[in-house]
Simulated assay, not measured.
Amino acid sequence: MQQLRLEPAWDRTLSTNDRQHIEHIFQETKHIQNSRISFSPIREAKNHSEALLITVLIHNGTDQPLTFHNKRLKYKIRDEVIGDYLFTLPELSVPSNVSMPWTFIFPKGSYMRNVPFENGELNII
């Protein structure tokens, strides 16, 4: 059975509204993660250095921990690739049958800048 888990820093700093939003997304999506890895969108934004921030709920429905060492992620909107970046995040490990929120940061130059970036989907390649 899928469980929601927060990384300790997220657990300490999440606002009540954000926590409720994430819990709602988890309740709506936890049943569709059978034996696979998927991402449920939470929010998208750009920061002060023009990096694209894609916050998702990572669902690891597999029987193996999910790590991010040289994992290529693509951010798509209507099948068009908007962002493409190779991530190595030693601090991120999602245990088997766990869902965890995370923000993936696509640096300036790794995504198309002059297109809308809302309502996309994130995929592991």
Rank of each mutant, 00 (worst) to 15 (best):
V98Q: 10
S38H: 05
G61P: 04
L14N: 07
M100F: 07
A9W: 10
E121L: 13
H24G: 07
H24P: 03
D79K: 04
S38L: 11
G120Q: 07
A51F: 07
Y85C: 01
L52M: 05
F68A: 04
E44M: 08
W10G: 05
F104V: 04
I22L: 14
M100D: 00
S15F: 04
I105C: 07
F117E: 09
I25R: 01
L122T: 00
L86Q: 08
N123W: 14
H31W: 06
P41G: 13
I22K: 08
F39G: 01
H59Y: 12
N70H: 14
M112V: 15
I125L: 14
R78E: 13
L4G: 02
H24V: 06
V98M: 03
I54C: 05
L73W: 04
H59I: 00
I42N: 09
L66Q: 06
T29V: 06
Q33D: 10
R72Q: 14
R78D: 13
Q64Y: 13
S93Y: 01
D79T: 07
D63H: 13
N70C: 09
N114R: 11
N70E: 14
E44K: 11
S40C: 04
S15L: 13
Q33V: 13
G120P: 03
R72N: 11
G61L: 03
Y111E: 06
T88Q: 03
L89S: 01
I37P: 04
N47K: 05
E118R: 10
S110E: 10
K30D: 01
P8M: 05
R78V: 12
N47F: 08
I125G: 11
L6Y: 15
T29R: 10
F106R: 01
P95D: 12
R78K: 15
K30A: 05
I58S: 06
E28F: 04
S15M: 06
I37F: 07
Y75Q: 00
H48A: 15
H24K: 13
P8I: 02
E50Q: 13
G109D: 03
H31E: 03
T29K: 08
L6C: 03
F68Q: 02
W102A: 03
S15Y: 01
R43A: 10
L122P: 03
I37T: 07
V98T: 15
R78G: 07
L53E: 06
T29L: 02
L73T: 10
I54D: 02
T103G: 00
Q2K: 09
L86T: 02
T67A: 10
M100A: 12
I124T: 12
N17C: 11
H48R: 15
L57E: 01
I58F: 10
S15D: 03
I32C: 04
S40F: 02
T16C: 05
G109W: 00
S38E: 08
H59E: 03
T103W: 01
W102G: 02
H24W: 08
P90S: 03
N97C: 11
L73K: 04
E121H: 12
S99L: 04
V81H: 11
L14H: 08
L14P: 02
R36S: 09
M112L: 14
F26A: 03
E44N: 10
H69T: 12
H24E: 12
F87C: 09
I82E: 10
S49G: 03
L122S: 00
E7G: 05
I25A: 02
M1N: 07
G109N: 01
K30Q: 07
L66N: 02
V56M: 13
I124K: 05
R113S: 14
